[in-house]
């Protein structure tokens, strides 16, 4: 799974994002949902969601941005 972003009006739902991007439920991590990343302006917010690699590469650049990496993160310690 990879991260993609989409610009939608404030208060948008995952279903709206999926429709906007032309994605099916199978292609999206619905457990992760739609996450608000930034409020771009009063009428538009930037959201993130996790989608399959194939879906990420199919997304129309005019509709969404990405894909972005979703690397592993680990604690910094104790050093080994």
């Amino acid at each position: 799974m990879l991260l993609v972003t989409v610009r939608l009006p404030p208060g948008a739902t995952l279903a709206q994002a999926m429709r906007h991007l032309g994605l099916s439920e199978k292609e999206v991590d619905t457990g992760y949902g739609l996450v608000l990343i930034d409020r771009v302006d009063p009428g538009q917010s930037l959201y993130g969601l996790r989608v399959s690699e194939a879906a990420a590469r199919r997304i129309d650049p005019a509709a969404g941005e990405g894909p972005y990496s979703d690397p592993r993160i680990e604690p910094y310690g104790p050093p080994s």
């Binding site: 799974m1 991260l3 991590d29 992760y32 990343i37 996790r50 990496s69 979703d70 592993r72 604690p75």
Partner: peptide, 28 residues
């Protein structure tokens, strides 16, 4: 506890930074 998460996925890049994205969204 963001480092406890291990989301299933289909690629070598599947990981947990997305959970940190969601965690920061919660903290906002």
């Amino acid at each position: 506890p963001v480092l406890l998460s291990e989301r299933p996925g289909g690629s070598a890049l599947d990981g947990l930074l997305s959970d940190a994205v969601a965690a920061l969204a919660h903290l906002r």
